[in-house]
Amino acid sequence: MASAAEQLAANMNMGTFAKATELHKRLLFTLLALLVYRIGTYVPIPGINSEAFLQFFQNPDGQRGILDMFNMFSGGAVERMAVFALNVTPYISASIIVQLMGAVYPPWEKLRKEGGESGRKQLNQYTRYLTVVLALFQSAGIAIGLNAQAGLVDAPGLFFIVSTITCLTGGTMFLMWLGEQVTARGVGNGISLIIFAGIVAVLPGTIARMFGLAQQGQLSVFILLLITLIAVATVVFIVFMERAQRRLLIQYPKRQEGNRMAGGERSFLPLKVNTAGVIPAIFASSLLMLPTTVAQFTATANLPA
Results as ranks from 00 to 15, higher is better:
N11I: 05
Q149G: 12
I207M: 03
E265V: 12
N259L: 05
V43G: 07
L303A: 14
L152P: 08
P46E: 09
P107L: 00
V232N: 10
A18C: 00
E22R: 05
I144Q: 11
G76T: 10
M261Q: 09
I45W: 13
A208T: 14
L225E: 06
N11R: 08
E114S: 11
F137N: 08
G75T: 13
F57D: 02
N87K: 03
G141L: 11
L34E: 07
N13Q: 03
K25D: 03
Y42T: 14
I194S: 07
G205C: 00
F84Q: 13
Q215L: 08
M289D: 03
R120G: 15
P46Y: 07
P204I: 04
Q251M: 12
G102C: 09
G40F: 07
P107A: 01
M210C: 11
Y252R: 11
L213Y: 10
G75M: 06
G119F: 00
S3A: 06
A10H: 05
Q138I: 15
L213D: 12
P304W: 05
L54E: 13
L224M: 11
Q7V: 07
I207P: 05
V221P: 05
Q245L: 04
F222H: 11
R26Y: 07
G62V: 12
G170P: 04
G188M: 01
R243H: 04
A18L: 01
F137G: 09
N259H: 14
V162Q: 02
F268K: 11
R255W: 03
L248M: 12
V278S: 08
S220Y: 03
F240N: 13
